[in-house]
Simulated scan of single mutants.
Amino acid sequence: MANWSDPRTASSAPYATRAGTRDAAYDAGLRSYMLSVYNYMASGVLLTGIVALLFASSGMAQAVLGTPLRWVIALAPLGFVMVMSFGMNRLSTGALQALFWAFATVMGLSMSSIFFVYTGASIAITFFATTVAFLSLSLYGYTTKRNLSGLGTFLIMGLVGLIVASLANLWFQSPVMSLVISAIGVLLFAGLTAYDTQRIKSMYDWVAGTDMMGKVVIMGALSLYLDFVNMFQFLLSFMGSRE
């Protein structure tokens, strides 16, 4: 038999190697990107928990309950979210980082009141349950081949309705309505966890290697942080044991 090589075979091996290298580099970059998002999110949750516990145990949280400062603390997180969301393109990555840590801190101040309402054991159990649910749902959002964009539209519409119902219940003070709102809130933010994870993952293709990636990492962490904290709060009001 003639000793020669098929040129198609000879040329396909280097191509396959390059393609495999490119795929491996892409996967490594995506993992690093998502890991950064999760690290920021987890660090923010940890900072919020520490601040909430220290603020409650110091007695300062009780001292501001009957003062106008209570409303400043309660509304400050919303202000930070709006500044970060609308100012993302104008702010530097460093400024967004500083705002994210400041947001996590004021969220801790705002959430310190849960230690006066619920038992420590129920807070710990609910936090553990939320963590398990969040990890499972986020893993689903990361790995599923199903496009969740349609689900996201439905969930956002449901979230608007939930906010309206919550504001209405401030007037009616209905325990049954509160229970229903909490149950729906858990389901909505469970769905948003999967949706946001897929959305954040898909954005990597657009920002990889650009100056925007650092900003997108922080904003992605903010989205997942809000999903986790809201799911925790609704689940706590749904199943937490009161003092």
Rank of each mutant, 00 (worst) to 15 (best):
A2H: 06
N3F: 15
N3Y: 12
W4S: 15
S5G: 04
D6Y: 08
P7V: 10
T9S: 11
A10M: 11
S12T: 10
A13R: 10
P14Q: 12
P14G: 09
P14D: 11
P14A: 07
A16N: 10
A16V: 08
A16G: 00
T17N: 15
R18C: 00
A19D: 07
G20Y: 02
T21Y: 09
T21G: 07
T21H: 13
A24K: 02
A25T: 10
D27G: 00
A28T: 10
L30R: 08
S32V: 08
M34L: 15
L35N: 14
L35T: 11
S36L: 04
Y38E: 08
Y40C: 03
Y40G: 04
A42L: 14
A42D: 06
G44K: 02
V45P: 00
L47S: 07
I50E: 01
V51M: 09
V51C: 05
A52C: 11
L53R: 05
L54N: 00
L54E: 05
F55R: 00
A56T: 01
A56V: 02
A56F: 10
S57K: 08
S57V: 11
S58Q: 04
G59P: 05
G59K: 05
M60F: 15
M60V: 15
A61W: 00
V64W: 04
T67Y: 03
L69F: 14
L69K: 04
R70E: 11
V72R: 06
A74W: 10
A76P: 04
A76F: 09
L78S: 13
G79V: 08
F80C: 14
V81F: 09
V81K: 02
V83L: 14
M84Q: 09
M84D: 00
M84C: 03
F86N: 12
G87L: 05
G87P: 09
G87E: 11
M88K: 15
M88N: 08
M88Q: 15
R90M: 06
R90T: 13
R90C: 00
G94M: 08
A95I: 12
A95V: 13
A95W: 11
Q97T: 12
A98K: 05
A98R: 07
L99Y: 12
L99N: 10
W101V: 09
A102I: 06
A102W: 05
A102C: 13
F103Q: 04
F103S: 08
T105L: 07
V106D: 02
V106R: 02
V106T: 12
V106W: 01
M107R: 05
L109K: 00
L109V: 04
L109I: 03
S110L: 08
S110E: 13
S112H: 01
F115K: 02
F115Q: 03
F116N: 13
V117W: 07
Y118N: 06
T119N: 14
T119K: 11
G120Q: 07
A121P: 01
I123W: 01
A124H: 07
A124M: 09
F127A: 15
F127D: 04
F128K: 10
T130I: 09
T130E: 03
V132S: 08
V132A: 15
V132F: 13
A133Q: 02
A133F: 12
F134N: 02
F134R: 01
L135P: 01
S136L: 15
L137V: 11
L137R: 02
